[in-house]
Design a protein around this nucleic acid. Structure first.
Lengths: 153, 153
DNA sequence: GTTGATCTTTACGTTCACGTCAGATTCAGA
DNA sequence: TCTGAATCTGACGTGAACGTAAAGATCAAC
């Protein structure tokens, strides 16, 4: 039911050092309340969280510091979910958290959409270029290599 | 007609140091034949080339070393264009260059498509999450904050 | 032909994101 | 209870991608 840091590392394809580092810089929450010196223990939910962090890092290509602020969205939503479990849900506080989460989500979305668009443009250009290269190759194949010049108008 | 390293840096939004560094590691060709000690001079074509390099770096998120091998495509195509100008175009050599360029293009495209897909997935997930958060906020607004619980089923 | 701004090379410094090592500690299993 | 594998903290090391400083050279403009 509870995983150790080595298991987690294997599961997500990284190293224990990296996980400790992420915790060190505040990118991951400190694993529960753990008397210093004792082994860290993780739940599957935390493994998923780590997966998500690494995915965002990979796809957004931002520094771990920027990523930390972007992840405030997840934090907020996690807290919302936690508050939903309990019953003392002061609605004003919930509203605050939701607004905060929304703001961070918008920032993430803007970032993602921008990159997505740029990538699409790049993809289009590349496939156009590929077409041209392919055409040139075909021309070269059908045109028997004559001695003189003038292969394309 | 010819720009100096500082102008180029301003034009593409980087620093002279970076440009020199890129030249140093072979990512950019050495600016023409330049007696060591003399100022580097650049054409607008070279500025565009640098822009493209920085764009690919940004969008693909690869190391400068990987980028160097990926850029072999541009090199090959540049050489093809150069050979088209001249008339002694040994067609077998052209075929080699075109094949090479095609290979590199395929690699770039595969990379771009993969990232593009992943980003699209992420974008979808994010906008779904945003929907849910917005809905929750609306619920909170329409439901007058009563004393008891039960806001959503 | 003399400035002053920009550039040159050389070389050491820096930040980020971890890797690696050491020595002590903890933990699961026999 | 003992043992061996994994983990702990703390520290220093590392590679990538530049930043920065120094001392001299170059270049455009006057």
């Amino acid at each position: 039911m509870s995983l150790r840091i080595g298991d987690v590392a294997r599961l997500v394809g990284t190293t224990p050092r990296t996980i400790r580092y992420y915790e060190e810089i505040g990118l991951l929450p400190e694993a529960h309340t753990r008397p210093s010196g004792q082994h860290r223990l993780y739940t599957h939910a935390e493994v998923e969280r780590l997966r998500e962090v690494m995915r965002l890092k990979e796809l957004l290509g931002v520094s771990l510091d920027e990523l930390k602020t972007l992840l405030a969205a997840e934090e907020a939503r996690a807290e919302v979910r936690a508050q939903l479990q309990r019953e003392d849900v002061q609605p004003e506080r919930r509203r605050e958290l939701l607004d905060e989460a929304l703001g961070h989500l918008e920032r993430q979305l803007a970032l993602v959409r921008h990159r997505s668009l740029e990538l699409a443009k790049l993809e289009h250009e590349l496939s156009e270029t590929r077409k041209r290269v392919k055409r040139k190759i075909r021309e070269l194949e059908s045109n028997p290599p004559l001695a003189s010049a003038a292969t394309s108008a």
